[in-house]
Design a protein around this nucleic acid. Structure first.
Lengths: 229, 229, 229, 229
DNA sequence: AATGAATGAGTATTCATTCAT
DNA sequence: TATGAATGAATACTCATTCAT
């Protein structure tokens, strides 16, 4: 059965296709492409399959994106729309302890990024970085740098308030980010293909990571008590 | 080098040199393939380039490996050679505290795996898992499971000895493994293509990770002192 | 403000204008197509470009011409409109010497055909003949044969009147036509793309051709005899 | 029947193909390509057909020429190897009258160029010039310019010796070249596709052209005067 | 009539794989 | 065993043509 027949078999009314008009197309294509690129990688994803999954023909894909590579870049850009400004604002308003903030931060991250298809982008970038250095650099600028900066400020807040011990902050950042990256990679690679052998419950995973992390970051309780008043 | 090869070399048989190279072929090819697969991924690596890097012709590659896919699998298997038996033995003999053991463990891992080309395998598996589920499962069985088991025993040792607090051991394992996986991925993807923007010193990174980790795993010093005697 | 709006503002009946344009459509398309086919050849000319140059959409083109091939044929037919009857009439009325007639003939040809876009048709036919044998045959019947006939009669007139020497008239025809064909091909190919290297002034070219044609390269025998000894 | 089957049907021994080794391939491909480009034009010639005519597979073509365009350029270059040096030498040695020289020149040209497949190149260049301006310029430099120069010198020789009248030499050159170009274009386009309607015998054509060229259409003035009254 | 989004057959090009030498 | 010329299936991309609006 050909790809186009598969699409037809989905039972779509040909008139319905016309109704979802031009303005919807790029989004549908980017959606389909994201899934496939994450699943199979750039090279192994066939343009025709992207089109079929979006319910259109091969030709239509190239009507909106001049090449497979441009489609790939568009997928990355589309899903990277930095929400860092918004987060920085939340950061400023946060009133609890920094420990609470770290917990909140990772939960929020999971809800808004980790659990969504947006996390596929990170998998994508990391897997394809060396074939798309240009994109990797872009991602570095647009995502990694501001994300790192936000985490850095959070850690500094903890140190300044006396909650956290003295840290090599530059590298302590990775104590926060590494578990997130790891979770994404697992979700989209091993976890996705041998799930029965790899039962990784994200919530429980993050819980465990944060527990150990905070005990490690925070001053011993008595010492902390000394420092606070 | 095998005994027979040593004998041949001593005998100065003119055929000996060719013989030696002949038997070395598969290894040279696997070497070249590992580098390229790690760098470009499976799909984007051309067989001819592998052959060229190994200094042989395209035809010769297929003399030793019936297909590109088999070559890939061979690369993974060859470099996955679990040294877990050896490590389990070291584990049994270790006499210091479990905290020291954790430090030692990560340093040794870096020296023996992380810093070597063997780490490329992990990058490879994670990047290509969904296109090679069979390999992913194999890796799961042969590497992840025993590795996890070793870490689990180490953590249990700490808990049993009263050094570590009560942990969700199943998931605390990731507190050890995630930083290692993260380091590998960075080394082979983003770190390899935008190095100027991503100065990540592995030693310092591991140092920082372990510091926070141990403070997190271990009971507060006074509590620990209470528990030990 | 668009042209149509300008017209509307003038208070013209909006229906009239559409009507006018509607009836002009095929012509505008044929015009655009002629230019492009001459410039790029049949295969390399894209229908969409033709439509765009005619100021309509791609769909409209196919409203008037069922296929690109039919468009091509229409372009050729449209521009081949033999004016041979008219010319034959002029021929009968001509009263000067046949030498004058030859001069007049080539000047007239240049003015009415060579210098106009109609000459593109000749370029087109000659370039695409083998891909459109049907058209080539048509052109042969409709243009070449009557054109040749006209020239033949002119030459015969010269011979009959005693002005011209005995000629292989069948082939002497080419003495007239070849320079014209040559001029057209140069104008539309080499001359159009490397003009700086190919400064060919049509008037002067035709002048030189006719001069030699009528008198030959050699000096008249007696004059030559004078010059030699 | 597919193209490859057509090739196979030619009954070639597969072993024989191997024997005509690498060194023969490019030539065979260029040969096949010349024919097809001349016959159908660049765009309408399919690479697979070129390969099939050369008796090899599609892939092999691209083993020797990186793209269809490069193949085209190679075809042109291959067949343009200037023999102008050789001809200039013949020119210097020529001892007869310039009229004889002109006759000789056109006969020789027909034998060596016009009648051979090399003439296809001229047809090619003229037909495709505007799509390959780079090649057209090259041809202008390598062929047209030196060819023109040679003809110019020949005409000058005639004028200097007193054989020829005073000429606009710059343009009189076309009196020689136009008939040759015309012959080539006819041979490869109209003449090739509607031969029954276009019986053009090259020898007789050239004969007629040269006759008129040297003597003109008109009778010598004195003879004409004799004939009129 | 006019539009332009959608289609899919067609084509250049790549690359894993074969095989005669 | 080793080579590298040859192969042809696979795939990105184009463009004439269709058709719902």
């Amino acid at each position: 059965m050909s790809l186009s027949k598969l699409a037809a078999a989905r039972g779509e009314d040909p008139a319905a296709k016309r109704e979802r008009r031009k303005e919807a197309r790029p989004g549908e294509l980017l959606d389909a492409a994201l899934d496939l690129f994450v699943e199979k990688g750039f090279a192994a994803t066939r343009s025709e399959e992207v089109a079929a999954r979006a319910g259109v023909s091969k030709g239509t894909l190239f009507l909106y994106f001049p090449s497979k590579e441009e489609l790939f870049k568009a997928v990355v850009r589309e899903n990277m729309s930095g929400r860092f400004a918004e987060w920085a604002e939340e950061f400023e308003k946060f009133e609890g302890s920094t420990a609470e903030m770290v917990r909140y931060c990772m939960n929020i991250w999971w809800e808004r990024i980790g659990a969504t298809r947006a996390s596929g982008i990170t998998k994508l970038i990391i897997s394809e970085a060396r074939n798309f250095p240009e994109l990797a650099a872009f991602y570095q600028q647009e995502v990694i740098r501001p994300g790192t900066e936000l985490v850095r400020r959070m850690l500094q807040r903890g140190v300044d308030s006396g909650e956290f011990r003295e840290l090599d902050i530059e590298y302590a950042v990775f104590n926060i980010t590494a578990p997130m990256i790891f979770l994404i990679m697992m979700k989209h690679s091993l976890g996705a293909c041998v799930p029965q052998d790899y039962p990784l419950d994200p919530q429980r995973y993050l819980q465990a990571q944060v527990d150990v992390l905070l005990n490690g970051l925070c001053k011993p309780r008595d010492a902390a008590q000394e420092a606070r008043p």
